[in-house]
Simulated assay, not measured.
Amino acid sequence: MKRYGWLVCLWLLSIVSGVQASPLLVASSQWPGYTEADGQGLYFEVLRQALRSQGVEFKVQVSNWKRARFAFDQQRADVLVCDYASEHANGVYPKWYLDMDPAVFVFTRQPMPSLQQLKGQSVGWVLGYKFAHLVPSEIQLVEVNSHADGFRLLQGGRLTAVVSYQQHVPADWQGPIFKTQVQAPRPLYPVFQNTVSGRELARLFDQGMQQLQQQGRLQALYPPDVWQRSGLATFDPSSVDR
């Protein structure tokens, strides 16, 4: 039995060594301040610090969200940054998350007492975002390259509504704008491949995040307002059944 125990230990060690042998590929969309094309940004930095403490390095591939999801789903990327826990049936999610995604709203230029009024209307959101379940199914979907493009089309009357976030409403918006909340804030996770090495990476990420928190270094990575929004100060990983 002892011999088998040693074999298991050696097998696990080989997995960890394989994970750390070469840089991982992390796929993401470009979110200014969070995931930049040059590898900078809050989410990349938190992921980097958590994994680096476990001896793991990575490189990034930033495109639009639809391409990033496709690269991950085709196993061309090791990690996807970042998504909701229910979005990838074949993905592995750690216990720790990176941030709390703000509430999602439907924005219109006219009051919208009922979302059913959107039936048959042009509704836009960013390419690759999974917002279809938040609005009536009988809409004319217009996928846009960015939140700014969506609000520009809404302002110009080419969209009846845009599904987005409060922080993306242009500062120079002209005229009234109305909003209806369609999704409460939700945690955003790095998603790992559902493989032996992917599951080990998720474990290493959790371990690294726990160490950063215990050392008092995690909060220092976040701007004060984002740290407060994230809820990480009071997060208890033991409450997550994964």
Rank of each mutant, 00 (worst) to 15 (best):
V92I: 11
R76N: 09
L98Y: 02
N145E: 15
S53R: 12
F205W: 12
L154H: 01
L7I: 08
E57W: 07
P237K: 00
Y189C: 10
D38P: 02
Q210C: 02
V56E: 05
P23S: 11
Q61F: 14
Q49R: 15
Y43Q: 13
Q207V: 03
S137Y: 08
L134P: 11
N194S: 13
N145P: 11
V144P: 08
D206T: 05
L10W: 04
V240W: 07
T35G: 02
K95N: 13
V19T: 02
G41Q: 03
G18D: 01
W11R: 04
K179L: 08
A21H: 01
G18S: 03
F235C: 05
S146E: 10
Q155E: 07
L25N: 06
L221F: 01
V240C: 00
S197G: 02
Y93N: 07
L47T: 13
C82G: 13
D172P: 03
A202T: 03
G91E: 10
K179I: 03
A103C: 05
Q207F: 02
Q110V: 11
G175R: 00
H133T: 11
T160H: 14
Q214H: 05
Q30Y: 10
D149Y: 04
E45Q: 15
D149A: 11
L10Y: 01
L204F: 09
P23C: 10
V62N: 08
A184I: 05
W227H: 03
P136G: 12
V8T: 11
L47R: 09
Y129S: 03
Q181M: 15
R67W: 08
L154Q: 04
S29P: 03
K130M: 09
Q74N: 12
Q75E: 13
K66A: 15
Q140A: 08
G41A: 04
P111M: 12
G55M: 04
A71C: 06
F235D: 01
R229E: 12
D236S: 01
P32V: 13
E57N: 14
A21T: 04
S114A: 14
W125H: 07
G41K: 04
Y129P: 04
L204E: 14
N90M: 13
Y4M: 15
T180M: 06
K119Y: 02
A161T: 09
S28C: 06
V60L: 11
V19G: 02
Q181Y: 02
